[in-house]
């Protein structure tokens, strides 16, 4: 009998309303959700269903209109800009569809951006070794392929040993083969470091590697499915 899983994120009635041109758009319409330590959660859903909005609020990039979000015991919904910056710096790793590396810094220097300011980072070289890019650490982004750039981005995200890794369409700009390689890195990190990993995707194939799949529709959670038999990324293709 395993101990009950620790809750990393908890939301209560989380609502986000965008007002554009006089129209009120409910991006999130009252979300109650818990995310657990060490799990890979895949958020699925069509565009505009609210999954990115949720990820941004969890990552401290956006404010909720109403409701509450806790990261462990820290209520994010009450924090100001400065405290959110601190929170991102200490606890969160982000991976985006378009890698967003600093073009003027080499792979290792991009990772050092994080290790220089984090509290208990791993060595930049170690982070790059973990994503299989130890040999290419002195290359600049312009000298790396798309998949390699994304792996540098992941190395940069995990180098601070974050408790959570938030990935928004991490394979969206990659072909199937390269995408799988990136997913392998995410799975490996999750397994070895126990990092809670939230992955947003349009790609239904990816759900096979998740512990849980949370499906969004119209700003609400449509259903939550627990994956009894997870596939390894090698066995996934699209």
């Amino acid at each position: 009998m395993s101990p009950p899983p620790q809750i990393v994120f908890r939301t209560e009635g989380l609502t986000k309303v965008y007002v554009t041109g006089g129209i009120r758009l409910h991006a999130l319409a009252g979300i109650d959700l818990a995310l657990y330590r060490g799990e890979i959660a895949v958020l699925l859903g069509p565009s505009g269903s609210g999954k990115s909005t949720l990820l941004n609020i969890l990552g401290g990039l956006d404010h909720a209109t109403s409701g509450h979000v806790w990261f462990r015991d820290l209520e994010l919904t009450g924090l100001g800009d400065r405290a959110l910056t601190r929170y991102r710096r200490d606890h969160v790793g982000f991976v985006f569809q378009f890698y967003n590396l600093v073009a003027s810094l080499s792979a290792r220097e991009n990772v050092q951006l994080v290790t220089d300011v984090a509290r208990d980072p791993m060595d930049a070289a170690e982070a790059l070794d973990r994503v299989g890019l130890g040999a290419r650490r002195d290359h600049f982004p312009s000298e790396l392929s798309g998949g390699e750039q994304q792996r540098v981005a992941i190395a940069r995200a995990i180098a601070k040993r974050p408790e959570v890794l938030l990935c928004d369409e991490p394979t969206g700009a990659l072909d199937s083969k390269t995408g799988v390689a990136v997913l392998e890195v995410l799975a490996e990190i999750n397994a070895s470091l126990g990092t809670t990993t939230v992955v947003i995707t349009h790609n239904a194939a990816i759900r096979a590697m998740a512990h849980r799949v949370i499906r969004f529709a119209d700003g609400k959670i449509a259903d939550v499915a627990v994956n009894d038999t997870r596939l390894s990324p090698q066995d996934i293709s699209w």
Binding site: L61, R82, T85, R88, F94, L101, V102, L113
Partner: peptide, 8 residues
């Protein structure tokens, strides 16, 4: 990116 990574 820097802001997201937690740079002030």
């Amino acid at each position: 990116s820097l802001r997201i990574m937690g740079f002030s």
